[in-house]
Write a protein that binds this DNA or RNA. Structure first.
Lengths: 192, 192
DNA sequence: CGGTAGTTTCAGAAATTTCTGAAATTACCA
DNA sequence: TGGTAATTTCAGAAATTTCTGAAACTACCG
C-alpha cells in the first residue's frame, strides 16, 4: 500500500518521515505529525491510514506517542463516535511544547544524574578530576535551563522583541549600564 | 568483556550510553564521549577499548563519528605513533559546537525543503492551506535561526550576562524604551 | 443482553541499526 | 624493499526498533 496525497503535501510528509530518526522519533510518527500539521481540519485514524498507506495499529501507536508529547490533540466531532486528531494551531505553542518535552526527556535526567554523582566522595585523583568536569557540565546545563525556565514565561510579543533584537541586546545592556547604572562593574555586589 | 572504570566515572559513562539514543547517537558513541570528557588527559583507542570493554573496530567507528561532530579531537603525543583523543576543554565551546552541528543536521535540511515546497504553485485549496502552514513553520524557524546566528557570535562574558539576566531583559527593554527612547512604539522605524 | 463500530494491545515478522572479528590499509622505520 | 605497529574497513552476526495482523477490548445502541 502506498501514499495517497497531493504532491506538495507528500513532499512535506516524506521529509518529516526521513528526518524523524534525527529528531528521535520514528518515520511513521514523523509522517503522521506532518500530515496533521498541514491538514485543514482534524483527521480520524482511518483517514491517516489511507493517506500514508500504513497499518491501522501503527497509526494507533503513532498517535499515542504524539499525544504523550502533547503535539497532537484528540478531538470529538458532534454525532461521530470516532476519535479525530489535530495539531495545535499556534506555532509558538508548538515550539514551547517541543522544547518543554525535549528538556524533560533529554536534559533533566542528565542533570539529576550529575547531581547524584557530585554528592559522592571521590576516592582518587581520577575521580576528583572527573567530578570537576561533571561540575562544569552541571553548572552550564543549570544556567541554560534556568534561563530557559525564565524566558519561556514571556508572552509572544516580548519573545518576538527578544528574538528580533538578538545580540544587539548586549550592546543595549552596556548603554543601560552607563545610564541607569545597574552595573555590576561600577559597584561590586550591591544586589538589589 | 566488561567495563573497567572507577565507580563514579562508570556511572557517568553508563548514563551517557543510555541517553545516547535519545540524543540521536548510539550507546557506545555516548560512552566514548563521556569517557574522554572526564579523563584527565588524552586517551588512545586501546585504552578506550580496555575501559569500556567493546571491540576495537567499534571504538574506531565511534571516534570517527565524534570527530565528524567536532566533539572529539585527534592529538599526537611526542615519540608516540598512536593517535590520542580528547574533548575540547572549554565547555562553552563544546556547547556551541553541539548547537552548530545539530542545527546543520536537524534544522537546515528542513528549512531548505520548506523553501523549495513554498516555491511551488498550489494546485488545490488543500495545497494552498498546506503551504500556508508550512510558511508559518518556515518563518518561525527562520526567526529562531537568525537569532541563533546572531547570538552565537557573542563572547563568553556577554553570553553569561545574557543568560543571568534572562527574561528580565524585556523589563529592562521597556525601561530603556522610556529613557533612551530607542522605542519602536514611540517613533515608528527610526532605525539607527 | 447481542450486535456493531471503533480503538488498543501484543506476539512475532520485517526492517534497521549496531557491533564484531578478520582482512585490508596506512605509515613509519631500517 | 620488507617488517612492524597502528588504524580502518566491511561483511555478516547480534541486538534493537518498528510494523503488522489478529485478537481483545470498549462503548454505545436497540
Amino acid at each position: 500500500m502506498s501514499m495517497n496525497l497531493p504532491p506538495l503535501v507528500q513532499s512535506f510528509v516524506l521529509h518529516f518521515g526521513e528526518m524523524g530518526s534525527r529528531w528521535g522519533i520514528n518515520r511513521t510518527v514523523g509522517q503522521i505529525y506532518a500530515l496533521l500539521y498541514v491538514s485543514p481540519g482534524p483527521l480520524c485514524a482511518d483517514e491517516i491510514v489511507a493517506a500514508l498507506g500504513i497499518s491501522r495499529s501503527n497509526v494507533s501507536m503513532g498517535l499515542r506517542e504524539l499525544q504523550a508529547w502533547s503535539l497532537v490533540l484528540l478531538k470529538h466531532l458532534p454525532d461521530d463516535r470516532r476519535d479525530f486528531f489535530t495539531t495545535p494551531d499556534d506555532i509558538w505553542l508548538i515550539l514551547r511544547t517541543l522544547a518543554e518535552e525535549r528538556k524533560k526527556r533529554e536534559v533533566d535526567p542528565t542533570l539529576s544524574v550529575l547531581r547524584e554523582i557530585l554528592m559522592e566522595q571521590p576516592a582518587s585523583d581520577i575521580e576528583r578530576h572527573a567530578q570537576q568536569r561533571m561540575a562544569e557540565m552541571h553548572n552550564m546545563i543549570e544556567r541554560l535551563t534556568t534561563w530557559y525556565d525564565d524566558v519561556k514565561q514571556l508572552d509572544q510579543e516580548r519573545l518576538a522583541t527578544l528574538l528580533t533584537l538578538g545580540s544587539r541586546v548586549t550592546r543595549l545592556l552596556e548603554t543601560t549600564d552607563r545610564i541607569v547604572s545597574l552595573g555590576r562593574k561600577r559597584r561590586p555586589t550591591t544586589k538589589g
